[in-house]
Deep mutational scan, measured.
Amino acid sequence: ETQAGIKEEIRRQEFLLNSLHRDLQGGIKDLSKEERLWEVQRILTALKRKLR
Results as ranks from 00 to 15, higher is better:
Glu1Ala: 11
Thr2Cys: 14
Thr2Phe: 11
Thr2Trp: 14
Gln3Phe: 10
Gln3Cys: 15
Ala4Met: 07
Ala4Leu: 08
Ala4His: 09
Ala4Pro: 05
Ile6Thr: 02
Ile6Pro: 00
Ile6Phe: 02
Ile6Glu: 01
Lys7Phe: 07
Lys7Cys: 15
Lys7Trp: 15
Glu8Val: 03
Glu8Ile: 07
Glu8His: 04
Glu8Gln: 08
Glu9Gln: 08
Glu9Val: 04
Glu9Lys: 05
Glu9Asn: 03
Ile10Gly: 01
Ile10Met: 02
Ile10His: 00
Arg11Gln: 05
Arg12Phe: 06
Arg12Asp: 03
Arg12Ser: 03
Arg12Thr: 03
Gln13Glu: 02
Gln13Asn: 09
Glu14Leu: 13
Glu14Asn: 02
Glu14Phe: 05
Phe15Gln: 14
Phe15His: 15
Phe15Leu: 14
Phe15Ile: 15
Phe15Glu: 15
Leu16Asp: 02
Leu16Lys: 03
Leu16Trp: 04
Leu17Asn: 02
Asn18Ala: 15
Asn18Arg: 14
Asn18Leu: 12
Asn18Ser: 09
Asn18Asp: 13
Leu20Lys: 00
Leu20Met: 03
Leu20Thr: 01
His21Phe: 14
His21Ala: 12
His21Thr: 14
Arg22Tyr: 06
Arg22Phe: 07
Asp23Glu: 14
Asp23Val: 06
Asp23Met: 09
Asp23Ile: 07
Asp23Lys: 04
Asp23Asn: 04
Asp23Arg: 03
Asp23His: 05
Leu24Gly: 02
Leu24Met: 08
Leu24Gln: 03
Gln25Asp: 08
Gln25Val: 14
Gln25Leu: 10
Gln25Ala: 12
Gly26Cys: 13
Gly27Val: 05
Gly27Trp: 05
Gly27Phe: 15
Gly27Ile: 06
Ile28Phe: 08
Ile28Trp: 04
Lys29Val: 11
Lys29Gln: 10
Lys29Trp: 15
Lys29Leu: 09
Lys29Ser: 08
Lys29Asn: 10
Asp30Ile: 03
Asp30Leu: 02
Asp30Thr: 03
Asp30Gln: 03
Leu31Met: 07
Leu31Asp: 10
Leu31His: 12
Ser32Gly: 10
Ser32Trp: 11
Ser32Gln: 14
Ser32Met: 12
Lys33Gln: 07
Lys33Glu: 02
Lys33His: 07
Lys33Val: 13
Lys33Ala: 07
Glu34His: 08
Glu34Ile: 15
Glu34Ala: 08
Glu34Leu: 15
Glu34Tyr: 15
Glu34Trp: 15
Glu35Arg: 14
Glu35Asp: 05
Glu35Thr: 08
Glu35Val: 09
Arg36Ser: 07
Arg36Phe: 07
Arg36Glu: 09
Arg36Ile: 06
Leu37Arg: 02
Leu37Lys: 03
Leu37Ile: 14
Leu37Val: 07
Trp38Cys: 14
Trp38Pro: 01
Glu39Val: 06
Val40Thr: 05
Val40His: 03
Val40Trp: 02
Val40Met: 04
Arg42Phe: 04
Arg42Ser: 06
Arg42Thr: 04
Arg42Glu: 06
Arg42Lys: 10
Arg42Cys: 09
Ile43Pro: 00
Ile43Glu: 06
Ile43Thr: 10
Ile43Asp: 02
Ile43Ser: 05
Leu44Arg: 00
Leu44Ala: 00
Leu44Tyr: 01
Thr45Gln: 13
Thr45Ile: 13
Thr45His: 11
Ala46Asn: 06
Ala46Met: 12
Ala46Thr: 05
Leu47Glu: 00
Lys48Asn: 05
Lys48Ile: 11
Arg49Ile: 12
Arg49Ala: 13
Arg49Val: 09
Arg49Glu: 13
Lys50Gly: 02
Lys50Phe: 04
Leu51Ala: 02
Leu51Arg: 01
Leu51Thr: 01
Leu51Asp: 01
Leu51Tyr: 03
Arg52Gln: 13
